[in-house]
């Protein structure tokens, strides 16, 4: 009887899992099948996810998986042929290029969009409207730690209020990009700011103090316009247009790297990339809150894909 109840428990457990399994394999719309493994940057993730979602609906027999290992983590997998496509929020580094070469992984680089970094302030703040890159460097530079503590030190027209800063943690690609562009060296930043990997925490922090400032992806500003204000950089407000044409200083490229071997041998990967670069696919870039690459660059990318499979 004891053994019975254990068996009963196991049976119930399995039945529960199987019942939920009731697979819904409808007649397929297309005959494309097989796996497409994607990993990489968390910044590119929303675009890839949106494209993957639509592609999966149109091709129910394919299996698209998207991971979020970060740009660097993505390349470590991509260069040992673990994945077919890798998302990146910066160009591939030399050591990553070498790793790919060692393992015979050839790839093409496609720029799919641009992400503007928003420098934001509290909604009630009325003096932080337009900052030059030099002023930003004065606020965020490593030399300013424990010395530049009041806004009046940044510009004499600003009030003598305490500077209160919020930004992403040092593991983030956003941090690398911002420090590289503003302070001239990736990773060089003052340490006395409130860091968080969760951008929603930064939003809450900035919304709570009138004299605060922070930076993160534009999409987080777009969702929180009621509590945050935007700061112009060198007189330019980030928008789809200024980010696209590069006139906004803090716009970073979003790439996908595609293995040529996968493109040639796996039909589903080729179709996926074609869909990604199609008008319908590339529209997802805008839908998730990023900016388009110029049309001629998109055309060039499409040609690169077709040439690599000939």
């Amino acid at each position: 009887m004891l053994r019975d109840s254990i068996i009963l428990y196991l049976v119930v457990f399995f039945m529960l899992s199987m019942a939920a399994c009731g697979s819904s394999s409808d007649s397929s719309v297309s005959n494309l099948s097989g796996a497409i493994a994607i990993d990489g940057s968390s910044t590119v993730y929303p675009v890839t996810e949106a494209v993957a979602e639509e592609f999966q609906i149109a091709n129910p027999d394919t299996r698209v998986t998207v991971g979020v290992s970060g740009t660097g983590g993505g390349f470590t997998k991509f260069c040992v042929s673990d994945t077919d496509i890798s998302g990146a929020s910066r160009p591939i580094k030399d050591n990553e290029r070498e790793l790919c070469a060692e393992n015979g992984v050839e790839f093409i680089e496609l720029r799919v969009g641009l992400d503007g970094l928003a420098v934001v302030k509290n909604k009630d703040n009325n003096y932080l409207n337009d900052l030059s890159m030099d002023q930003l460097a004065k606020v965020w530079g490593p030399a300013s730690e424990d010395s530049v503590m009041k806004w009046s030190q940044v510009d004499s027209s600003f009030p003598a209020e305490d500077i209160d800063l919020y930004g992403p943690g040092t593991d983030s690609g956003t941090f690398d990009f911002f420090t590289e562009e503003v302070n001239g060296e990736g990773g060089a930043s003052r340490g006395d700011y409130t860091p968080s990997e969760d951008d929603n925490v930064l939003v809450t922090g900035i919304a709570g103090n009138e004299h605060s400032m922070g930076y993160f992806g534009y999409a987080y500003y777009a969702e929180n316009m009621d509590t945050l204000g935007i700061i112009k950089v060198n007189g330019v407000t980030p928008s789809n247009e200024t980010v696209s044409n590069g006139s906004y200083a803090l716009s970073r490229p979003l790439y996908i790297y595609v293995s040529i071997n996968s493109l040639q041998k796996k039909e589903q990967v080729l179709e996926f990339v074609r869909y990604y670069l199609s008008d319908e696919g590339i529209a997802m870039v805008i839908e998730v809150g990023y900016s388009n690459v110029p049309v001629d660059e998109l055309e060039a990318s499409r040609r690169t894909v077709e040439e690599s499979v000939q």
Partner: peptide
């Protein structure tokens, strides 16, 4: 160990992602 974030299908064997 590399569990993924976007998986729009259910695993069918123990070796599936």
């Amino acid at each position: 160990i590399g569990a993924l974030t976007f998986v729009a299908f259910s695993p069918e064997t123990p070796l599936d992602p």
